[in-house]
């Protein structure tokens, strides 16, 4: 089997879901990389620690009060605003965020998400994930298709504790793009060099194969 997408290419593919005018929240980790691929788009980034309208991550210039939710110093763009966490999560739960892109550990066949608690490690943290999963108008999950040990992460029922029920709209993995709609999973794109059968074999949930399934254009 060919190698799947790198983390950067997963982020690039996820970025293709974004378009002008959107208000977007990027989760910690892989989703942060999506910000590298939105130059030229008129997108407003929200960070749940209380910023609307941040730009690039500033590697060298650390200002402790100007960070995103991943603790990284960020550029504050013209037109940006700052607010407290109650207002920030009001924005999130209140349906004012068009798209949230989060990392995932498991997604179920009906779009349940598990992304905060690793039983093998005896814990995890919730942060803003549960509110974002419930509140964003569209939820995109970026993750590896299988675990390091080869176990599927897309399955009939999540074995890890849930972040939220029936919340996922789209999954972008290193192998595939899968739509979650009406509590059904549909394979819509395959990574270059990866076959539909390979994806079916590495997915532990029923997958509808879209009649127009195609290779991702990256």
């Amino acid at each position: 089997m060919a190698d799947g997408l790198s983390r950067e290419l997963i982020a690039l593919r996820a970025s293709r879901e974004l378009s002008d005018g959107m208000i977007v929240n990027l989760g910690i980790g892989l989703p942060t990389l999506v910000s590298n691929f939105i130059d030229g788009l008129d997108i407003t980034l929200q960070s749940e620690n209380g910023i609307l309208g941040y730009g690039n991550i500033l590697e060298d210039d650390f200002e402790p009060d100007f960070i995103n939710a991943g603790g990284q110093p960020v550029e504050i763009l013209p037109g940006a605003s700052f607010f407290n966490s109650a207002e920030s999560f009001g924005m999130i739960r209140g349906g004012h965020i068009d798209v949230a892109i989060l990392g995932g550990l498991q997604v179920s066949s009906i779009g349940d998400l598990a992304n905060w608690y690793v039983p093998e490690r005896g814990g995890g943290s919730i942060g803003g994930a549960m509110d974002l999963a419930v509140g964003a108008k569209k939820l995109i999950i970026t993750m590896a298709h299988i675990t390091k040990d080869g176990a599927p992460r897309i399955m009939n029922e999540c074995s890890y504790p849930l972040t939220a029920e029936k919340c996922v709209d789209l999954i972008v993995t290193d192998l595939a793009v899968i739509q979650c709609q009406d509590q059904q999973l549909t394979l819509v794109e395959t990574a270059p060099g990866i076959s539909v059968d390979e994806i079916i074999n590495l997915t532990a949930a029923e997958l509808i194969i879209d009649s127009n399934v195609k290779e991702m254009s990256l």
Binding site: G90, S125, G128, G135
Partner: peptide, 19 residues
């Protein structure tokens, strides 16, 4: 200390914590 049971933890979703 948490894993040894020496300190308690109530984990709260961030928006719920703020509200």
């Amino acid at each position: 200390q948490y894993h040894k049971g020496e300190v308690g933890l109530e984990l709260v979703p961030q928006g719920t914590f703020a509200e």
